[in-house]
């Protein structure tokens, strides 16, 4: 399995680049990763990431966008604005979680 290093943080990822071990994540690391996808994390960006970490700690799986909407109460349109392109994948990566597998 590949190991990534950025600004002194080291973490293991799968072949696609998603985290294998959520404990190798930290908020400082998330800030560094966000810079790689041209996102500057402000409070609005942090809220869904924190929710994803809490939710996945409970359920064991990365929440889908639909779950962010129904359980987390986030606005889908806003999430697409905050993380344009591939919102849920970007958020899962920034939260140190595996790729979401749910279809909806």
């Amino acid at each position: 399995m590949p190991t990534n290093t950025v600004k002194g943080h080291t973490f293991e990822v799968n072949d696609e680049g998603f985290f294998i071990n959520r404990d190798q994540w930290s908020e400082e690391l998330a800030v560094e990763l966000a810079a790689l996808i041209d996102v500057e994390l402000d409070e609005a960006h942090w809220a869904p990431i924190r929710f994803m970490r809490q939710d996945s700690a409970r359920t064991g799986v990365t929440p889908t966008l639909r779950r962010l909407q129904t359980v987390g109460g986030f606005d889908v349109k806003e999430l697409y604005r905050l993380y344009p392109g591939k919102p849920v994948k970007k958020m899962a990566w920034l939260a140190g979680l595996p790729k979401p597998v749910g279809c909806v």
């Binding site: 990534n4 290093t5 990822v13 072949d15 696609e16 680049g17 810079a35 790689l36």
Partner: peptide, 20 residues
């Protein structure tokens, strides 16, 4: 735009929009 470190394995998030 922050450079992606050498040897970094990263998910495919599509093309980065280059800053001017």
């Amino acid at each position: 735009m922050t450079e992606i470190p050498a040897g970094f394995t990263m998910p495919d998030f599509g093309p980065r929009v280059a800053a001017p």
